[in-house]
Design a binder for these strands. Structure first.
Lengths: 127, 127
DNA sequence: GCCAAAACTGATAATAATTATTACTTTATA
DNA sequence: TATAAAGTAATAATTATTATCAGTTTTGGC
């Protein structure tokens, strides 16, 4: 994989945004910052970085994929009110891979956990 | 929600198919069985049943949604070789909701776990 | 530095899953 | 049974994502 200026700014934008952005969102930010980047380039590079493990692709939320520069094992929570995506520490499901492999006999290469509910901020606002 | 013949056969087809079918798959089965049903009707009813909790919608696998008539809490495993979707007992992640709520302070309404890997059948075939 | 090969890009067309629309039909109930 | 609400079939529309392709960058050897 060669260097590319576009991939670099896409990665930086992802890393700077705690919100777990979608491809479209990153594209909008870069366009505002006057970059002449193409949406296809954003998709291409996010997928490329995801498949080589440099970033993480989060699927199964709404209808679009989101991306995460944090590749350390962790899970996600999406707020049903504000749509924000939060990280959840992996300690909430200790030894889940070992337990599942023991129980099923399958080989597990990866797993994802997504929680849905109401975040603290939105709970406060409700009152 | 009123009764409809179409919804009934969609539910029956879902319940009869252990494979966690997609909307398209259910539609194909029903079309073969000569029903004049429309694909939009299949989508409409699966989503309606899912949102009232009568069935479960499984997202985050490939690019299409799958459905499960088993509403008992459980998780899913998708085989990277054959694409088959298996159920995983909820015991692999004991107290995950309580733990996550305690740790984050968020209210959790639902959660999904998806494992990716190789199933037993495909592991046997590999040798 | 120069050059060819490989990798990459922007623009846009194509694809595929899902949802919206609409005229008509079925269901529930007063 | 009449009528309003809910549902349907057929298909157009939408939306996220991927493919295509001609042109540009990057890279490593000379």
């Amino acid at each position: 994989m060669n260097y590319s200026r576009q991939r670099e700014i896409i990665y930086k934008t992802l890393a700077d945004n705690v919100v777990h952005p979608s491809a479209e969102y990153i594209y909008e930010i870069l366009k505002e910052a006057d970059s002449k980047i193409s949406l296809a380039t954003v998709y291409r590079n996010l997928n490329k970085m995801a498949s080589c493990g440099h970033i993480k692709k989060i699927e199964g939320l709404e209808d679009r994929a989101h991306f995460d520069h944090n590749t350390f094992e962790h899970y996600h929570f999406i707020c049903e009110k504000c749509g924000k995506i939060y990280d959840v520490a992996k300690e909430v499901a200790p030894e889940i891979v070992k337990k599942t492999q023991d129980k099923t006999g399958f080989t597990i290469n990866s797993h994802d956990i997504v929680f849905h509910g109401i975040c603290l901020e939105c709970k406060k606002k409700e009152r």
